[in-house]
Write a protein that binds this DNA or RNA. Sequence first.
DNA 1: TGCTTGAGCTCGCGA
DNA 2: TCGCGAGGTCAAGCA
Lengths: 264, 264
Amino acid sequence: MDTLLQNPDLSEAKKVLDEHLRREFTVQINGLCTVNYQGRAKSKLDRGERLVIKKQDTATLVHGPENYQPKNWQPEVDSFNVKTEKIEGEKHLILKAERTNPEEVVKVRFEEIDLVTVDKLIDKSELKVRGHEVDIHESIEENPDIIEDGLTIVEREKETPAGFIDVFGRDKKDRWIVIEVKRNPDYNTILQLQRYVDEIEKEYQGEVRGILVAPKITDKILDYLQDRDLEYVEVDMENVIASYEAIDNSQKGLSDFDADYSVD
Amino acid sequence: MDTLLQNPDLSEAKKVLDEHLRREFTVQINGLCTVNYQGRAKSKLDRGERLVIKKQDTATLVHGPENYQPKNWQPEVDSFNVKTEKIEGEKHLILKAERTNPEEVVKVRFEEIDLVTVDKLIDKSELKVRGHEVDIHESIEENPDIIEDGLTIVEREKETPAGFIDVFGRDKKDRWIVIEVKRNPDYNTILQLQRYVDEIEKEYQGEVRGILVAPKITDKILDYLQDRDLEYVEVDMENVIASYEAIDNSQKGLSDFDADYSVD
DNA sequence: TGCTTGAGCTCGCGA
DNA sequence: TCGCGAGGTCAAGCA
């Protein structure tokens, strides 16, 4: 902890902010504030007690007492500006965070500040996640039979005018197969698959099959899919994760997901 | 500020957490920790200094020194569990946050804690945002001419077998018009519009035009749209917001977006 | 830098 | 409770 101020005078807080709103520091401010945003949209947030966090990449978050998501934010900031202002005899501290591309401003007006802390957080660890969609891709590439007996993979991430096809292949009767993989398929997923099938039909000779590969699907979306003569193949995410860990083990000698990292 | 502990002993920290991991309190913990998650996917995060925030709705965030998004989180938690553990002579504090539906666990293992604070944040203000997609709808209804001279609106949110049409109308030559409004149009938007047009052509007599209304579009998607004989009309979000504010003013006597809330 | 898509998406609305 | 779509989506990967 580089600095910790409790109930500072706003001028005192301004001094600390002026010195520490740079890339090397993480700054937290607890206080009573109003927030305005203007840019891609426009928002206002009246008086309330919130946490403002300025991270070391200048990303800035205004968190209320509820919810995962911040009330206001700036993903990465080009410039900060701090000033104090007297409004009707009351002193306020104003923190403005601006960026271009897109052009946006967040303005936080503090009436009271309860706490300011400054840190240099050291965190060199990378987050490792398994169970992403790409893990299903890997899993198919590793063992195409999980989709269908005799499937041959021709290309991954095949580019078409309508976008990228996840997996492109042929079945054992030499029909083209377009595979769209999705963890959480929705109506758009079906349209997307349709889009790819249309493109391949335009460009290639012969029959084209479109297959959605997902761990689950709702009845309505399954109907929607089958109405368009598309197919559905279910995969088990547990198996996908397990198979990935097996590969991981054999390749690196040691899994990133050893038992000692379990949540039990 | 209800409580503030600097560099507490882990047992001391545990005592404070046991008392305050309930809905009424916001708890912040700065410390050196590892984090594991298991549920819809699986993740692990090695040692690093992070901020853990437990909000008053039990939402829990683990923020690293960078990025808008937390490294790990739990949107709303069903139960917390705190314990201390001796591993190879080192005492650790373990915070487990679990929820069902979906079944997920986040486990944070602290080796050191720099700071614990407990607050009851009071924030009754509602965030007010303008510039959503629905504001464009309003804007079109208010003044159809922004799309095209002589446009008559027949129906909003018109149901078809392919989904809901944002705006359905007629042009001055009595052709049907299907309008799809989108802040961030993509390829699927085009296919969706196409499907609505197809539905209307099936069901109605006469020519049918499909119009995408958006504040911006990429060249490729514009091509994709024009290949399908669909049209694009650009709207200026500034105008949409301004017109909304004008309506707001006239209806409520006072805008929610007065000049004193500007970001200047 | 821009384009495209996934995300443990989250969140709110509606049936 | 679940399905569905928007988001100031963000962020990663690739051209």
